[in-house]
Design a binder for these strands. Structure first.
Length: 566
RNA sequence: GCGCCUGUAGCUCAGUGGAUAGAGCGUCGGCCUCCGGAGCCGAAGGUCGCAGGUUCGAAUCCUGUCGGGCGCGCCA
């Protein structure tokens, strides 16, 4: 992204500013009374009308002002529309607006000018890579922690949603003008790792697997790979044998997890172990910080954080009566460690089963002097994985699970990414694996990819015919087929802006589908390659190329490939 | 019992207080002498769980209620 690209306001933003000027002008001229000093600042909302006859953009500002002004919304709308029209007439290049109309009960409908649409297309062609990215109004440095599965076994399909949602969230935030660090938190020591080690040791030495051990096939493979040196070290360590083998196994498992994530197209900037938070002193210092603030007390031999001060329903133990820190203590230390790296905001992508810990972590952050609003948890609802109508229950311990790798071998990364990106993270969803496989060729993702590939084919054929895209659509945009497609294309920055603000990705998939539909309609109505009409062909090729860049950039936000052919 | 999430077309799901609630799949009916038919056009299909309330306007906000999911450890 270059400054020239990012500095361009969206068409929507330009429209909002024009409305603000018109409102101010209407007040100056006495048509409308001044805004009272005590009133909350008016936020002008502009949206895409559902119906094309309502224009390209619409604002409800007159409806909002009706109550404080005690005036009919239509009158207010007309007063603002008059000023908007005056500006458009005096200088048609001042705004992207070509015409204004007022509709009951008080909407102001705006129509974009062909010149504005053409200008955007020209910018896309001049700089396709940065197209769609926007400058954040308040850029933040954001830490996004996701997946964070402990290395006790391979990633399962239970981890799929968090991995994809977290990854797409990062891409969206970056495109929205923020800087993002992707972070994976894990515990490679402790009781569960010890049990994993004990399991592997038992298999390797021909003993039965412990009751509370891990029964998946992968432990067999790990046992076979266990180096003799580690085995010898374990034997020499006596009671800690499980921990020694577990430590080695955790490393091996993590390597496998990284490979799986790589296959998904998910990459992390930081891998942080829970143990390091202790050895580096973060937990200890965080507890001291809470203690200094008077937020800690000792009872029954344990050390408690007074979480109720901040609205929690009970206080929380941070040091057990044995002196051992709890998992929550690590969380607290981690908060300080993350903020020490200069982040403005921490986002945790958690399974919804962790919602009970949200309040205490935010409370601790507040108690240590951080803004609790800067600590945000995105709770991902569970996915019911269903095979032949029967839910598959996952247990790493019991060894009954489907790995992420298996799922993606069957369903495909692009289809799986689309499936999760197109659904709200907070809503529980069913994933029928058989159905997903069966319908994969009819998955909406292929509809979008097909549009991209079709454009690639057109551009190839045009090149063979000696036709190259023009620098812009020019006067050809006055055609209705061109204008309709252009109206979809130019929305990308607004879609990204909204997605980044909402920290959601569904809008991207919806937009990509609508753009693909718009392209297919254009393809039906407008013949692109027409050697006898080279100028019009070149203009249409420009528009088609802009559509292709837009599709490619939208798909890239989702981590989905944009094929040249399929 | 308390807390968080959730209930929208036959199925799977979109829908940041706005105009006639949408998409994909499925069903039914049309469209290839022409740039890719993984496409296009059309039809059927909805008391937005239910009942109140706020608002000029509610699928959206509030209250209650019914159903589903998940939590409520000196586990992680």
């Amino acid at each position: 992204m270059t400054p020239s690209q990012s500095a361009q306001p969206t068409l929507r933003r330009a429209a909002i500013e024009a409305i603000e000027r018109a409102l101010a002008a209407a007040i100056r001229s006495g048509f409308l009374p001044p805004v009272a000093a005590g009133d909350a600042p008016l936020v002008i909302e502009v949206q895409r009308p559902a119906k094309p006859e309502h224009g390209d953009l619409a604002t409800n500002v007159a409806l909002k002002l009706a109550r404080p002004y005690r005036r009919a919304p239509l009158e207010i709308a007309q007063a603002i529309a008059v000023e908007l029209s005056r500006e458009v007439e005096e200088d048609p290049t001042a705004t992207p607006i070509a015409s204004i109309s007022v509709a009951p009960p008080g909407f102001i409908n705006l129509h974009l000018s062909d010149a504005a649409l053409d200008g955007v297309v020209a910018r896309i062609l001049a700089e396709p890579a940065g197209w769609g990215r926007v400058a954040a109004r308040r850029p933040r440095r954001i830490n996004v922690e996701f997946v964070s599965a402990n290395p006790t076994g391979p990633l399962t399909i239970g981890n799929a949603r968090g991995a994809f949602v977290g990854d797409v969230l990062c891409r969206v935030l970056e495109a929205g003008g923020h800087s993002v660090a992707r972070e994976y938190y894990f515990n490679d020591s402790g009781a569960q790792i010890g049990k994993l080690g004990a399991t592997i040791l038992a298999i390797r030495t021909g003993q039965p697997i412990p009751e509370d051990g891990y029964h998946g096939d992968y432990t067999q493979a790990l046992a076979a790979e266990l180096p003799d040196a580690v085995l010898a070290e374990a034997a020499a360590s006596g009671a800690d044998a499980g921990a020694v083998v577990g430590s080695w196994a955790a490393g091996a498992v993590r390597t496998g997890i990284e490979a799986s994530l790589d296959h998904l197209g998910v990459h992390f900037d930081v891998w942080k172990s829970e143990g390091s938070l202790h050895t580096e002193g973060w937990v200890e210092r965080a507890i001291e910080r809470l203690r200094a603030g008077g937020h800690v007390y000792v009872q029954d031999g344990a050390t408690w954080f007074r979480s109720t001060t901040f609205g929690d329903d009970k206080d929380r133990v941070i040091l057990r009566s044995t002196g051992e820190p709890t998992y929550f203590a690590s969380d607290i230390g981690y908060v300080t460690e993350k903020f020490s790296r200069g982040f403005d905001e921490l986002i945790y992508v958690w399974g919804s089963d962790h919602h009970g810990t949200v309040a205490r972590v935010r409370n601790a952050a507040e108690a240590m002097g951080y803004d609790r609003e800067a600590v945000r948890m995105l709770l991902i609802a569970w996915v019911r994985f269903v095979v032949d109508g029967v839910e598959v229950s996952m247990s790493k311990r019991a060894g009954t699970f489907i790995t992420l790798d298996q799922l993606l071998d069957e369903v495909g990364v692009d289809a799986a990414r689309w499936f999760f990106a197109s659904r709200a993270p907070t809503s529980g969803i069913d994933f029928d694996i058989e159905l997903a496989k069966k319908q994969s060729s009819e998955n909406p993702v292929y509809y979008v990819q097909y549009a991209h590939a079709r454009i690639a084919s057109i551009l190839r054929r045009a090149g063979e015919a000696g036709l190259e895209p023009a620098d812009s659509v020019g006067s050809a945009i006055e055609g209705s087929a061109e204008a309709r497609l252009a109206r979809e294309i130019v929305r990308l920055p607004e879609v990204i802006e909204d997605a980044a603000a909402l920290e959601e990705a569904q809008g991207i998939t919806a937009f990509a589908t609508e753009l693909a539909t718009a392209f297919h309609a254009f393809y039906r109505d407008a013949k692109v390659i027409e050697p006898t009409e080279p100028e019009r062909s070149r203009a249409r090729l420009a528009l088609v190329a802009a559509a292709q860049h837009t599709l490619a950039n939208a798909l890239a936000l989702l981590g989905i490939s944009a094929p040249e052919s399929m």
